[in-house]
Design a binder for these strands. Structure first.
Ligand code: MN
Ligand code: MN
Ligand code: ZN
Ligand code: ZN
Lengths: 143, 143
DNA sequence: TACTAAATTGTAATCATTACAAATTAGAAA
DNA sequence: TTTCTAATTTGTAATGATTACAATTTAGTA
């Protein structure tokens, strides 16, 4: 069940703790780019002793070890992503959903830009998602 | 002095007010992608009656009218940019500087991605800026 | 099994942003 | 030019995300 996540932590010489395993599992099973509150309240149900601060601490540790990434796309809170492989993100300004955009970009692999050493690249698209466009049309037809 | 900014506001049928003019002027003359606090404290010197809330309100109005853009690159606060023309941004994790990256990207102009309607595109690069790399080298040689 | 550095926990700051109501004012109308 | 009013500005009080910190617990080692 958790072997996969145990391995990840051990490979990074991180202590294997329950909060870390649960957070990894949650992110692995929920590719919705959740914020801290979503992760916390989901895990709190199963592990009532869990502290919000632990979620913050653990996410920070996982991020420093490049096991997960944080997204600044929302502008008001960090969103977390365990998915590997370079991909970009779309945020719907209507429903707030954050969706993977699987495109490759010639600039994504560059390690130097304008003389600056690039360590991370994030491509953000903002607009109205497919689902919300459908709802919009429905409203127009019925209104 | 301010005619240029008066024109911008009038073209958008926005009321011409002192805070709006000063904010536009400040952003136009300081392409450093400042946060609210930087704008506020810079303008407060000349206009002691200025309120921080007004800076927030004005920036929001200018943004809604697409006169300026906000960047979520820092993750902790919004940064503002009046520059026109599509360009991307680099943030230095050492000194915090946010620098324009003048590259064109085939995905920047797309209005649809994965079926989603794209209204805004932001490309963020994170790493160590040119200046901080030089400092780093200096330290290494002298240390 | 005992030890210790690291992790977890809970509470109290802090910081950015928003809510709100009162005072002021830009621009339209008279 | 004066009057009027909706929009804007202002100050203060929430709110929400994140960080600081000290006490408690625990994973991994000896
Ligand atoms: Mn993703
Ligand atoms: Mn810029
Ligand atoms: Zn949507
Ligand atoms: Zn730098």
């Amino acid at each position: 069940m958790y072997e996969k996540y145990v391995k990840i932590l051990k490979d990074h010489t991180l202590k294997v703790t329950s909060p870390r395993l649960e957070i990894l599992k949650y992110l692995d099973e929920h590719h919705i780019h959740p914020n801290v509150e979503e992760i916390y309240s989901a895990l709190k149900k199963k592990h009532p002793s869990l502290s919000r601060t632990t979620v913050y601490n653990s996410l920070e540790t996982l991020k420093k070890n490049k096991i997960i990434r944080s997204l600044t796309i929302s502008g008001s809170e960090l969103r977390y992503d365990i998915e590997e492989g370079m991909h970009h993100h779309f945020i719907c300004t209507q429903c707030g959903a954050i969706i993977d955009i699987a495109i490759s970009c010639p600039n994504m692999d560059r390690t130097i830009q304008g003389g600056h050493r690039v360590e991370e690249v994030q491509g953000y698209f903002k607009g109205i998602c497919k689902k919300c466009q459908t709802k919009e049309k429905g409203r127009n037809n019925n209104g």
